[in-house]
Design a protein around this nucleic acid. Structure first.
Lengths: 367, 367
DNA sequence: TTGTAGGCGTTATCAC
DNA sequence: GTGATAACGCCTACAA
């Protein structure tokens, strides 16, 4: 039996196509077609149906439609976490783009954990999402769950962090370019010995930022010195620890490019604790344009990741895939690469003047 | 006909209960019951079914189940926006609690706009969510769309910002208490004339923070002076503007409690630009514990909103409502009030010592 | 303890 | 142009 409550207990019970059909004395087919603007329905009939639908505030039952079509109006999103600035901003862009196209987004967090990530995939498959957007967990070294998604013919788009391979759809930042721009800038500001705080090298994004660093050094004819590189988690403590090691060297660096803003901040603070002046004695550049970077004193030079664009682009790509698949077309896999933006602030500016008024925060919010 | 692709194009096509039933030579009923651990099924049969389900990696089609039961495993969330620290953190807590209970969350942004909010509601109703969590848009002054949700018998929980009325389920912060604690602290630090930067007074949260401010003044036997209050958006510029006005007074304040951290920061920076020393000449307290507050120099005293708890508590309340409704029980509406936490930092500490080492960032993240 | 059958709301196919 | 009907996958009242 239908588990729905009696009409008495639920006054505004949802209206179904059958209700409209009955009231108009036509068949459900007609109603369905009129609502989806099918060509075979006469214009005056269409109008009648649509007016009644509006009157009763008819909302199609998406579950029923999804069941019938094997295709819902839901997009699944898997992010490693929802802290910091990056992922919330990307998700924000995704939700905006999705809702413009009449889709809703379902969010899952993998907590940087493979097991969670697998469960997230199952859960989204079970929810019959029309496609999945995923930024791969840091600890993921087995990618069969993603293969399974593709095996089911479900469109899949990676963003920011992708699995290895070529035949993938993805939207990523040109992290190498970001590392290159930041390092070149530090060199241009008179850096002679530029150190690098690198993220964990399992993640492509961090390998690429490191590569950009090396490219910039190579371009300047400088060697990559092992003692000037440190790899760790992007945290203040790790950044401070790296700086302590560097300052204990016989020939310490005079600039540092950190692959993350938290590490940059920690390194900067440690340098100041040890009596150095930033940027004069030690220029600092970070990565991610975290909310605090324009506020820190000195404000921190960093690389912006175009979060919103990334989210919107990923959704657009996914919707194209869904469309193509609905039409039975083959779709060559595509990788979009967004260009990062170097944001120069006080922590790296040795030459030229500092801007007299600090720039306003990008993220100002009312809450 | 079934719109699904042929088996050749989709090798790992999803397995249905009918498939399992056929393979085992039993009825779908048996399979269905075995999978939901129904008492009427023998243990060895249960085992057989569950093993086969595992073998084929059977995932129930939630759309079908939802359609049948009139009840999905989706929770709808409406937030005004996904920027800043607060809402992403709350959503994070919601997703965590929801996924523990086997639910997925669907996110919508209202962009602080009534029209969007109405559309969000329609969209979630259409998606057949099992319940809705909403933080009301700032511009919303018509609440019929929420009444409609309740009219449909769909559980509704407000968080942080609720609509007016009593018979509501909600999880909110005790904003009055937060304002009171912050102001009392500023007075205890020797503030004689404490100013207040207030948010837009349409929102209850800001009215309550203002009320807390007045309560603390009253307790200290001080009057509320109109020239010491300023209302505006929580932005750096507005904070700076307020401070400019106050410093132009014949008898300027020596402390300020801002209902938002961005305004607190702006006010603090403006005071420093005018040559005052924070906290000695001007003590500053904010609200929200934004990511930048521990990093600013001086670090900013603020009120933490227990975001994660709020998200989790809201989901727990919603799930209770869903449960109660499934059992046909009546559920007295309930309002949970979370106690805020005053976080004392450098911007307000005139007495006692400043902590020698700055605390680590709460939000350190790897991205 | 297990099976049969009907229906949730929508849409695609076929017939008129 | 329009209508009747079957099916999507699951759940459950009822029968056996």
């Amino acid at each position: 039996m239908a588990p729905r409550k009696k009409a008495t207990s639920v006054p505004n019970s949802p209206v179904s196509m059958a209700d409209l059909a009955r009231e108009l004395g036509v068949s459900m087919t007609t109603v369905s077609r009129a609502l989806s603007d099918h060509f075979s329905i006469g214009p005056e009939m269409k109008l009648k149906v649509q007016k009644l639908a509006k009157k009763y505030n008819y909302q199609p039952n998406r579950m029923a439609s999804a069941l019938r079509k094997g295709q819902s109006k839901l997009l699944g999103i898997i992010v490693p976490y929802l802290e910091g600035r990056f992922f919330p901003k990307v998700v924000r862009g995704m939700e905006t783009a999705a809702s413009r196209a009449g889709y809703n987004v379902v969010i899952c967090q993998s907590n940087e954990d493979l097991t969670h990530e697998r469960r997230n995939i199952e859960s989204l498959l079970s929810a019959q999402v029309a496609g999945i957007l995923v930024s791969v967990s840091r600890t993921t070294d087995d990618f069969r769950h993603f293969e399974k998604v593709r095996g089911r013919g479900l469109p899949l788009v990676f963003f920011d962090r992708m699995m290895p391979g070529d035949a993938l759809n993805a939207v990523v930042l040109d992290d190498r370019e970001g590392g290159y721009l930041a390092t070149r800038h530090l060199l241009a500001q008179g850096g002679r010995r530029v150190a690098h705080f690198g993220g964990l090298q399992q993640l492509t994004i961090y390998r690429n930022r490191y590569q950009g660093y090396r490219d910039a050094l190579a371009e300047a004819g400088l060697p990559v010195e092992e003692e000037l590189t440190y790899f760790g988690d992007n945290t203040e403590e790790a950044g401070a620890e790296a700086m302590r090691r560097w300052l204990a060297l016989p020939n310490p660096p005079d600039a540092v490019f950190a692959a993350g803003d938290y590490a940059a901040l920690g390194a900067m603070q440690e340098a100041e604790r040890q009596g150095l002046v930033v940027p004069t004695d030690m220029a600092v550049g970070g990565f991610s344009n975290e909310t605090f970077t324009p506020i820190a004193k000195p404000s921190i030079t960093t690389v912006d990741q175009r979060c919103d664009e990334m989210g919107q682009a990923a959704v657009r790509l996914l919707l194209e895939l869904i469309d193509a698949q609905a039409q039975g077309l083959d779709f060559a896999s595509r990788q979009l690469v967004l260009r990062p933006e170097l944001i120069i602030r006080e922590s790296s500016q040795r030459l030229g003047r500092l801007s007299p008024t600090p720039e306003p925060l990008a993220d100002a919010a009312v809450q």
